[in-house]
């Protein structure tokens, strides 16, 4: 009798365990399904790739918006202490744009945040880790010069340049951050000596604003870099977002305005996808590196050749060599192309 009761109890418990396991599996599946919704391909009127590029380059300002941008980084670079976003992984940023050079970017980390605010005349950079604020006046004149006088003509010129070295195509549609978008695909011509296989840009069908950029490199099916909106809402923004008052206890430093002519002198070797940019650090800057440039002295492996010696930094999409005599050569190319450019 006691034994029979025990058997019944055990069977009962077994049934409960089975019910529990079934419930848990059902809940687990529910969790997976509820979080992983696949994006549909919206139906949009067909468009010629040239027309799409032209409309993007000459599109008017999309107006105020806010959104969340996600960066999926597979570049294979080491994470720098000042810039954890450089390392492989996913990071997000919250973005607000008020139009007219006003904007706010929040780069959150697990226990801190960097906030960048532009109020139209001053640029503020806040770092919660050490409670510092860097303040820099915005050079309005330089900003105006950057804008082409005739957007349509500039767009036509840009397309001609693209055509010489790449294939431009529209590869269907996509849904990005809940908005309909065209997928513009740039593929390097076979003669280009580049590490890149394809660059995809999702363009908003209505506002003609790029919503997502995907960079694919040779030899990897996964994107080397994918940056795009995961949330995007157009509409007026709270003006308070575009002001910044240094909080009590913060250290404020002033940075000089960045003029258009300042910065290292640059030369380019080659054109199109296998272009290599060579920059020479100004002589006075070799001793005191710029405070907002990340320290690269510990990155890369030593390399030498007929051009001299330096450190080689490789990633899935590009190669850079920092020479010991203060030159920096970089491009979306294999190491050989960079050393050739340096030897020239």
């Amino acid at each position: 009798m006691v034994q029979a009761e025990g058997m019944a109890g055990r069977r009962n418990r077994g049934r409960s365990v089975a019910a529990g396991v079934v419930t848990t599996i059902a809940v687990g599946l529910g969790l997976l399904v509820s979080t992983g919704a696949a994006g549909a391909q919206p139906q949009l009127p067909p468009i010629a790739p040239e027309e799409l590029v032209r409309s993007v380059l000459s599109a008017p300002n999309p107006g105020p918006f806010n959104g969340t941008v996600e960066l999926q980084n597979g570049l294979g670079l080491p994470a720098l202490p000042e810039l954890p976003q450089a390392g492989n992984g996913t990071s997000t940023a919250r973005i607000w744009s008020g139009g007219e050079d006003r904007g706010r970017v929040a780069l959150p980390t697990d226990s801190g945040e960097r906030t960048l605010v532009s109020d139209g005349t001053t640029f503020w950079a806040w770092n919660s880790a050490d409670r510092t604020v860097v303040r820099r006046p915005i050079d309005q004149a330089a900003r105006q010069e950057d804008r082409p006088a005739d957007p349509t003509a500039a767009a036509t010129r840009a397309i001609e340049q693209l055509r010489a070295t790449s294939t431009v195509a529209v590869d269907g549609t996509a849904e990005v951050a809940g908005r309909d978008a065209y997928e513009l695909v740039l593929t390097p011509a076979p003669t280009e000596r580049t590490l890149l296989r394809e660059v995809r840009v999702a363009v908003d069908a209505e506002k003609r604003m790029p919503l997502r950029l995907t960079v694919l490199s040779t030899g990897s099916p996964d994107p080397a870099l994918r940056v795009g909106f995961t949330e995007l809402t157009f509409g007026p923004q709270d003006p308070a977002l575009f002001t910044f008052t240094p909080p009590p206890g913060a250290t404020v430093t002033d940075a000089p305005a960045r003029g258009p002519q300042e910065g290292p002198e640059r030369t380019t070797v080659g054109d199109g996808w296998d272009r290599v940019v060579i920059a020479r650090r100004p002589a006075d800057a070799t001793t005191t590196p710029s405070p907002d440039a990340p320290d690269l002295s510990s990155v890369g492996s030593p390399v030498s050749g007929p051009w001299g010696s330096g450190r080689l930094i490789t990633s899935t999409v590009g190669t850079a060599i920092v020479t010991d005599d203060g030159r920096l050569a970089a491009g979306a190319v294999p190491e050989q192309v960079v050393t050739e450019a340096l030897s020239r």
Binding site: N12, S16, A19, G20, T24, V27, L31
Partner: peptide, 23 residues
């Protein structure tokens, strides 16, 4: 919070089932 609700539902379902059937 949504994730916690799923766990809460799963845990609650198992407790209730087990206690209703328990000798």
């Amino acid at each position: 919070t949504l994730r916690a609700l799923w766990y809460l539902a799963a845990g609650a379902a198992v407790v209730v089932l087990r206690m209703l059937r328990r000798d």
